[in-house]
């Protein structure tokens, strides 16, 4: 393996982290989908480089699958969903973006600290990336908590899954193929189910604002 490829993987890891922050602060729904597609592309690039360096054949398949699913198919589905729900120009009011960024930075520091002892043990090409992957998971989690609209929540969920795929690739050279296929299938089916749900939620609640979904409570 070359110094260059390690640098490249680190570069992609940092792009992924940057995109996670960008997502956190993005108000327009349509741009969230674009960022999600970019995330997918970053994961594909990182996977291909790891595959090239380590000669793990199944990682090429994994990269192709990620490309087809997360760069083309799922963003396409999301675009159609946005079109049919007519929420293309939706802008979400996010309160206090600077403080959200600060909390995000704290999360990054926390995940770096958490993964430090493990990164030292890692035999993989790029030990530092596990911390970044963990940070991306937590940032997506935070995005899901702070959003009140249905679609941004789903995109947060999907971006969390992206971060996990990246973690698998960089820390372990990818899960076995059968597991990756299963994960991809689950995510795909999940997106379709959530898409159907969104239509029904809007039909029933006349809004896609999840804050309306607060009727089920104790007395």
């Amino acid at each position: 393996m070359t110094e260059l490829s390690i640098q490249l993987i680190n570069l992609f890891a940092s792009i992924l982290l940057l995109l996670a922050f960008a997502m956190l602060a993005q108000r327009r729904v349509i741009n969230l989908v674009h960022i999600y597609a970019m995330q997918g592309l970053t994961v594909v690039s990182a996977t291909s480089i790891v595959a090239f360096v380590t000669h793990q054949e199944h990682l090429y398949y994994s990269a192709v699958m990620t490309l087809a699913l997360k760069v083309f198919l799922i963003p396409l589905v999301l675009h159609r969903l946005i079109k049919r729900l007519d929420i293309r120009w939706d802008v979400e009011t996010l309160i206090n973006i600077p403080s959200m960024m600060l909390v995000g930075i704290v999360l990054v520091i926390f995940s770096f600290n958490l993964s430090l002892p493990i990164s030292k043990l890692s035999t993989s090409v790029t030990p530092g990336t596990l911390g970044i992957a963990l940070a991306c998971v937590l940032l997506s989690f935070m995005m899901m908590i702070t959003r009140s609209k249905a679609l941004p929540q789903v995109i947060g969920f999907l971006s969390m899954e992206n971060a996990l795929v990246f973690a698998a690739t960089s820390a372990t050279y990818g899960m076995p193929m059968v597991v990756e296929l299963g994960i991809a299938l689950d995510v795909l089916v999940g997106v379709f189910i959530l898409g159907v749900f969104m239509f029904q939620i809007r039909e029933q609640f006349e809004s896609l604002d999840i804050s309306h979904l607060e009727n089920l409570k104790e007395e």
């Binding site: 989690f141 899901m144 249905a150 929540q153 969920f157 969390m160 999940g190 189910i193 959530l194 749900f197 029904q200 939620i201 029933q204 609640f205 999840i210 979904l213 607060e214 009727n215 089920l216």
Partner: peptide
Amino acid sequence: TPASLEAAWKYFILCGV
């Protein structure tokens, strides 16, 4: 029903995370 959709959405998002 609205209630069942709400329950299913919560279920999906929470268990998904």
